[in-house]
């Protein structure tokens, strides 16, 4: 019996009888973060980090069946030690450390190593077995520095203003949008946001996060209200009639997928900004190395490829099929945006 097992309902710890980010309803679920492919409906009990709790509670409409712990705090369940450690993916996101009789497993959830100025920085956790994502597990993914990307975003916003266009920037409602708010030069002009983003942002603000002021885009607003503004919207708004009221506008997308010219062009954006909340190739390798794990399980993304690469580097690595939506993440996030709007 392994400390963690991969079952039809999700990642399972038989010794404690709990699941980590399960995709089917279970009795007790430990949740890494609030994205829809990790925090799902229908479990009896939820456990997550204190900073992740308000979002998960809001998204899943939970009342009293959710509990939270601080980062690093140990929770004993049936003699198994669980603790949450920063994953750097979005504010409050965690890796889950599991220990029994000296054997340590870590489930990373989603993570990135680059500091975004908002999320608790990723913390390497030593372990025997590491379960890693691989959304961007190919050597062609290599992120530019965040400062460079925001220089570009600021320049683009200014250029849009000069050309009389509204700068519309698409990024996921949960995490990416707040990262943009935190790092963009808010002195350039008014920042306006889609309703789905305003809701999430306000939840973070209530937790004490300091973000520049935003104005929610309302149906009755006229083009003049958007003059010179930066409008942040979820990716699902691309191609929707909602965008029309900003004409003329310049459309930017902030995503790791924008690292490839093909994806950039396919999405029909004027500008692609390479801004990812997942680790790039170098970060994935660094993270795996720093855990010191001999056994690596690779979940969503280019899992087959990354597992083969690790195997060739002497690790016992294998691909695990999960229902986290690496390859389909664009779609997943779109669904998630819808969930948030409701």
């Amino acid at each position: 019996m392994n400390l963690l097992e991969f079952t039809a309902k999700g990642i399972y710890c038989p010794a404690a009888d709990v699941y980590l980010d399960p995709w089917q309803p279970v009795k007790k679920a430990l949740i890494t973060h609030g994205h829809s492919d990790h925090a799902r409906w229908g479990h009896e009990q939820y456990l997550c980090t204190t900073p992740a709790e308000p979002i998960i509670k809001h998204r899943l409409q939970l009342t009293d069946n959710i509990q939270s712990v601080a980062f690093g705090e140990t929770v004993m369940i049936n003699g198994v030690q669980f603790s949450f450690h920063p994953a750097g993916h979005i504010p409050g996101s965690a890796q889950i450390r599991v220990e029994l009789n000296g054997e340590v497993w870590v489930f990373s959830g989603d993570y990135k190593l680059q500091h975004d100025g908002l999320s608790e920085p990723f913390e390497p956790v030593r372990c025997h077995a590491f379960i890693t994502e691989s959304t961007f597990g190919l050597p062609v993914y290599s992120w530019p520095s965040q400062a460079d990307v925001f220089d570009e975003v600021n320049r683009w916003w200014r250029k849009s203003q000069e050309e009389g266009k509204v700068a519309v920037l698409a990024g996921y409602a949960l995490g990416k949008s707040q990262r943009i708010l935190k790092n963009v030069d808010a002195t350039l002009g008014k920042i306006m946001v889609h309703g789905a983003i305003e809701t999430v942002t306000n939840i973070f603000r209530e937790q004490g996060m300091i973000l520049p002021p935003t104005v929610r885009v309302l149906p009755e607003m006229k083009r003049a209200d958007f003059e010179g503004a930066l409008v942040i919207c979820p990716p699902s708004a691309i191609g929707s009639p909602w965008l029309r009221k900003f004409e003329p506008f310049s459309l930017g997308i902030a995503s790791g997928w924008m690292g490839l010219r093909g994806t950039r062009r396919r999405r029909g954006a004027d500008r692609g900004f390479v801004l990812s909340d997942h680790a790039d190739w170098r970060e994935l390798n660094q993270a795996v190395r720093e855990t010191g794990a001999e056994k690596v399980f690779v979940t969503h993304g280019y899992s087959e490829i990354f597992a083969r690469w690790l195997t060739e580097h002497g690790l016992d690595a294998r691909e695990v099929k999960t229902q986290y939506e690496g390859e389909l993440s664009e779609m997943a996030e779109a669904t998630e945006d819808k969930a948030l709007e409701a």
């Binding site: 490839l260 280019y302 690469w309």
Partner: peptide, 12 residues
């Protein structure tokens, strides 16, 4: 092989 996998994803 890894270069080739990458090429097939990038397409250029």
């Amino acid at each position: 092989w890894l270069f080739e996998e990458s090429y097939s994803v990038v397409g250029d």
